[in-house]
Structures are given as structure tokens and as C-alpha cells.
Amino acid sequence: MAETRRPRSLLVSLAAIALVVGGSAAAFAYTAGWLSPGRLTPDKVVDAFAPPGGPALGHRRNHAKGICFTGFFEANGAGAELSRAKVFEAGRYPIVGRFNFGTPDPHAPDASARVRGFSVRIQTPDGQEWRSAMISAPFFPVSTPQDFYQLLKLLAAKDPEQVKAFAGAHPRFAAFGAWTKSAPWTGSYAEERYNGLNSFIFTDAGGKDHAVRWSLIPEATPTPAPAEELAKRGPDFLEQEIAQRIAAAPARWKLVVTVAGPGDPAADPSQPWPEGRRTVEAGTLVADKVEQEVDGPCRDVNFDPTVLPDGIRTSDDPFPAARSAAYAVSFDRRTAEAKNYGAQ
């Protein structure tokens, strides 16, 4: 009996693995557009970021200007209530990160882009990683990757009437525009709140799932400064300020996880969740060393948001898979263009 059950058990296991791998491959192929030539593809999205003069070779295709940092995430253990991921067990875990802002031009003046970014890779002793790329905006301007691609094409065309028509058909884009005009600027990466706008699923030790989003809340008090004033500080004031600040003392953020309530739109990053949702402060992220990107530890890191540890997985939000595919294309291109890095 044991001899007949063992092969059957092995076949069942192999079949289960094949289903998982096949399903993942199918999902990735669908996202990449391989199953239907007319679909949106990662290459099209990456191409749409290129400015009129072409992309900056050797650089990331978006958020091209940035600076590396290292430090650690100090988990307080509270996050284990929501996820069994090792990263939420009380302890200190090394990180590599990147401060950046939303532009395809690595030489753009620091006061030229409203959206700032914070990318991070957290590693745990069991060999797992959690990668995340967050931005300072409280919500995304559109709800689907297809809408985002359409928006990129419209902005590149610089046709005010088409953009106006798009805004009329996509109310959240207008709301995003209002945020860019009204939200106060700060003079430091350390004073920004960074939001993971996509929803993910945390699974706790008991197997219960929780739809969540997360944010980094700065320990430093934000000091508003008009964009005109910031422009006078020089084209690279953000990099210079954060390097000086962290050389004097580490910069810190609280990692706050927000749990979705009934009916909250987990698949739409353009829709903020209502105030008052349950939150869990999972620990403190600390940046204690800044290095120039040209030879820094973050230069070759792809901050793919689908690189997740056991206990965290993607939700039905379509953006993480689309971002992952586009990031891979961007990474491959800039790696192939490495000789051009820093030459422009």
C-alpha cells in the first residue's frame, strides 16, 4: 500500500506545483501582453515615460533622479498580529533604499517635480525580502494600468483639450491635480510621508487574511516651503540636504499599516480609504547612511513591489503586477546601457 500511495502522492504534489507555476506564468503573460498582441505591454508603458529627446540611457525610466541610503527596520512585533512574515517579528533587519522623485530626467531640478519617492528593500535572516516603492501622494491619479498609459500618452502630446477631456472622464485625476496644487512642499526627503498606494494581503499565523496598505510617517516635523523658495536652493538641494541631515543624525519613519474595512476598494489605488480605519504601527524604519547612486548600493536594485516574503501577497489590485513587469523592462534596458550611466 505504501508503495502505491507514494507515487500517487508524488504525482499529486507535482500536479499542484505545476498548477501554481502555470497559473503564475499565465498571469504574468497576461500582464505582459503576450497572450494578445493588442494588449498593453510593459514595453509600451516604459516607452511612454521617455521625454521628447529620448530616455536617459543607463538610468531608471521613471524616478530617474535619486540617491541611495542604508539603514535598518526595527520591528516592534505588533505587525505579527496581521502577518506571519519574519520581518514583523521584533528585531532589527538591514535595509537598502533610495530617495527619489517623479521624473524621467536624472538632471531635473529638485523643485520641478511634486511627487517624491521612497524605495526600500528589507532583508531577514531567513533569506526573504520585502521590497516596496512608495510615493508622497495620498492616492494615485487613475485606477487602472490602461488609464495610466493613456494619461502618459496624453501628457506627452501636450494637448490641453485632450487632457481636459481625460480629466472629465476620470474624476480622480482632477482630484490628484488639486492635491499637487494645494499640498505643501517641504525642503527635505526626511520630512515627507510616503504611501504604499497599492493594496496587499497580509496573512497572520492563524491563516487569516487582511487587506492592507502601508505608509511611512516621518519623525521629523514637516516644514512647508513654497516651490519658488525651494528652487532658489539649487538644482540638487534634496540630495544635499538629506546627505547633510543623515550625516548628523539618522532619519526615522514609523511604519503604519492600515487595515481595510468592509467595502473598501482594495483594487483601486486612486480611491483613498476612509479616515478612522484600523492601523497598526509595526516599527521604525531608520536611514543612517547616504551614498551617491553612481556607485551606491541601491543602483542595481530593482524595487519590484511583488518581491514579497511569506505572509504577504498581492491582492486583486492590478498595479503591482503591471509595475513589476514594467520595472523588469526598465531594469533590463538600463543594465544593457550601463556604459552610458553618468555620461549624460
Results as ranks from 00 to 15, higher is better:
D236L: 09
R245S: 11
A251F: 04
Q240N: 09
A227T: 09
A205K: 14
G234V: 04
W214S: 13
A248P: 04
Y194L: 08
H210S: 13
P235F: 04
I201H: 05
P250V: 01
D204G: 09
E229M: 13
I217F: 13
P226N: 02
E219I: 04
Q240W: 01
R245V: 09
G207P: 06
A243V: 00
P218L: 08
A227Y: 10
P218F: 06
A243T: 03
T223H: 11
G206S: 10
P222G: 04
A243P: 00
P224W: 07
Q244S: 15
A225N: 06
T221N: 11
E241I: 00
A243K: 01
R245E: 08
F202V: 07
P222H: 06
A231K: 06
L238F: 07
V212W: 09
P224N: 04
D209E: 15
Q240K: 09
G234K: 02
W214Q: 14
G196S: 15
F202M: 13
F200R: 10
S215K: 13
I217E: 13
P226H: 02
K208T: 13
G206V: 03
I201P: 03
A248N: 10
E229T: 15
D236P: 05
F202K: 05
D209L: 11
T221G: 06
I246G: 00
R213A: 05
A225W: 02
A227K: 13
E241K: 02
G234R: 03
T203Y: 02
R245L: 11
A231P: 01
S215D: 13
I201G: 04
K232Y: 10
E241T: 07
A249C: 02
E219D: 10
D209K: 15
D236A: 12
